[in-house]
Simulated scan of single mutants.
Amino acid sequence: MTAAHPEGQSRVTPVFDQLLALLCAGKAAFRILEHPAEGKSDAVARIRGTRPEQGAKAMLCVASQAASTPVLAVLPGPARLDFRKLAVAMGARKATLADPALAQEVTGCAMGAVPPFALSPDVRLVADPALVSSNAEIAFNAGRLDRSIVLAVDDYLRLARPQLADIIRQE
């Protein structure tokens, strides 16, 4: 089902509005879930009523080269990011998590609320294939800790157009 912008909704973030505009314009199959604010993958999956593996965890990362483009790394909620693999996907020698202030500045979101979309042309998007190969839908915080979107995987791939690369750390 395609959701329209909820009427009478209280103040929303620009990122939330951007996502809704993108998904509606792209005729995506999605639904919006309102819930208590939560930024932890396993806890928000329980609140959403989704499997933790459906959660699209997005983390802003930077390469060791100062002038390189930041990368939004997206992986299933319970997975851990392998920074060496991400560096290879970025064409860099080393990748690290961006500091919270930079992540907020670049994404417009608090940590934990970053959606799996590169809404800025200055951000590259890399997603692990495990997220999209084993789920019909993904779920993610939509620029806010109290709003999630559940989105058809095909629509995510079509609209976000992530580079797919193995970036999960094997335990």
Rank of each mutant, 00 (worst) to 15 (best):
K40I: 03
R48W: 00
D128K: 02
A21Y: 10
I168V: 14
H5I: 03
A142T: 02
L81K: 09
P78A: 01
R161W: 02
R46P: 15
P6E: 05
M111H: 11
R46M: 14
I149M: 12
G55A: 12
R80K: 14
A113G: 08
A118H: 15
C109L: 11
E105C: 12
Q170S: 12
L86C: 10
A127F: 15
A127Q: 06
R161V: 00
L75E: 03
V132F: 15
V150Y: 07
M59V: 12
V150A: 08
P52D: 00
D128T: 03
E105N: 14
S68Y: 06
G108L: 04
M1Q: 04
R51Y: 00
A152V: 05
F83V: 01
K40E: 01
V71E: 11
T13P: 07
F30T: 04
S120L: 08
R169G: 09
A142V: 02
S134P: 06
T69N: 06
Q163F: 09
R31I: 12
P36G: 07
A29W: 01
E53C: 14
L119T: 10
M111S: 07
R80F: 01
P100Q: 14
V150C: 09
L157H: 01
F16R: 04
R51I: 09
A21G: 08
A152Y: 00
G8H: 15
R51H: 01
A92P: 01
A45Q: 14
E53V: 15
A127E: 01
A28F: 12
E137K: 14
D146S: 05
A152F: 00
P129V: 13
Q104I: 02
L33Y: 02
Y156T: 04
G39S: 13
F30G: 04
E7S: 15
A21T: 09
R84I: 05
D122S: 13
A152K: 13
D17W: 10
T50N: 14
V44Q: 13
C109P: 11
L164I: 08
E34D: 12
V62D: 02
P116I: 00
A160C: 07
K57N: 15
A21P: 01
Q65G: 04
V88A: 08
R147I: 06
L97W: 03
I47Y: 15
L145D: 08
L20T: 01
M59C: 04
A3C: 13
A92H: 06
G55N: 13
A95K: 11
L72C: 12
P76V: 04
N135A: 03
C24I: 15
K85M: 03
A98R: 12
V132S: 13
A98E: 06
P6K: 06
V88P: 00
A79L: 09
